[in-house]
């Protein structure tokens, strides 16, 4: 579906289920936010399932990403503000699900716009996200090496051998293609936003909404220990650790993430 925020077109996947059907008007509205250099399709294992399981799912392309109009926004705070406008545009309180950079955006949005955000699920994040200088350097010049580096680092060791949940698909191949096809400069800008953002712990400290953290035990981009300050700051959060996931649990253990989302939305413990 397409809708507008600040006069610019936003592309979102809704699992091919319209969100404005009268029969689902009261269903939770779930906004899924992708990470750096990625797009809405990182949630393809969750979006359509959520849409058919009692929610209105909206996996957005952030400004300048995927099929959404640009330009990309310049800070995590601007992106959090943009998410609050997504809530306004879609007309309801939203549940936010964010991955990596999208998790930072979700944290910041939930802290600053708590009146619009009912709950939060974040995955693939630490209290900070430093970026390897070689990755940033490659991204700065749109070198395909950047996509290659990220695709190699973002998945756990088992996923490098394969057995993709979707028959016939290559996990590293898919990740590389999504990043490679992102518009020029988008990945470089996103990586800078991640590296510069230092508000995650402060945001977490102020959160009052139900919050779930999904952490991959084999995450090399944001190792589990890097999330500990966040977990301490959140205090009340529900923390789920997935045994074979790296940095992208929604792709690597999609069923476990679907279960985590369902538990969070329909029987919250956090």
């Amino acid at each position: 579906m397409r809708f507008e925020v600040d006069g610019r077109s936003v592309l979102a996947a809704t699992g091919a289920v319209p969100i404005d059907r009268p029969e689902t008007a009261e269903a939770p509205l779930v906004i899924l936010i992708h990470g750096a250099g990625m797009d809405r399709t990182v949630w393809s294992q969750q979006t359509r399932w959520l849409a058919h399981h009692g929610t209105r799912a909206v996996a957005v392309d952030l400004p300048g990403h995927g099929g959404s109009d640009g330009p990309p926004l310049g800070s995590i705070f601007e992106l959090a503000t943009w998410i609050s406008k997504v809530a306004d545009a879609l007309g309801g309180d939203i549940n936010v699900v964010g991955h990596s950079m999208g998790a930072f955006i979700g944290l910041e949005a939930a802290a600053k716009f708590g009146d619009k955000i009912s709950s939060l699920v974040v995955m693939g994040l630490g209290a900070a996200m430093p970026v390897h200088p070689d990755l940033q350097a490659a991204a700065d010049v749109d070198d395909p090496l950047a996509a290659d580096l990220m695709a190699g680092w973002m998945h756990g060791p088992e996923q490098k051998f394969g057995t993709h949940p979707t028959p016939g698909m290559s996990m590293t191949g898919t990740s590389r293609a999504v990043i490679e096809t992102s518009p020029s400069g988008v990945l470089a800008g996103d990586l800078k936003l991640c590296a510069e953002y230092d508000g995650a712990v402060a945001a977490a400290t102020t959160l009052t909404c139900p919050t779930t953290l999904v952490l991959g035990k084999l995450d090399r981009m944001t190792p589990r220990k890097s999330a500990q300050p966040l977990i301490r700051a959140l205090g009340h959060a529900n923390v789920i650790e997935l045994a074979t996931s790296g940095h992208a649990p929604m792709m690597e253990e999609p069923e476990a993430v679907r279960t985590a989302l369902a538990d969070h939305l329909f029987s919250p413990t956090g």
């Binding site: 394969g162 993709h164 028959p167 016939g168 290559s170 590293t172 191949g173 590389r176």
Partner: peptide
């Protein structure tokens, strides 16, 4: 789809540098 065929598909997708394959 079939699990044995899926191994071949994923292997060929990997060797060619694609996102996926259908045998």
């Amino acid at each position: 789809s079939n699990p044995t065929v899926a191994v071949l598909e994923e292997r060929l997708a990997s060797l060619e540098g694609g996102v996926g394959a259908v045998c």
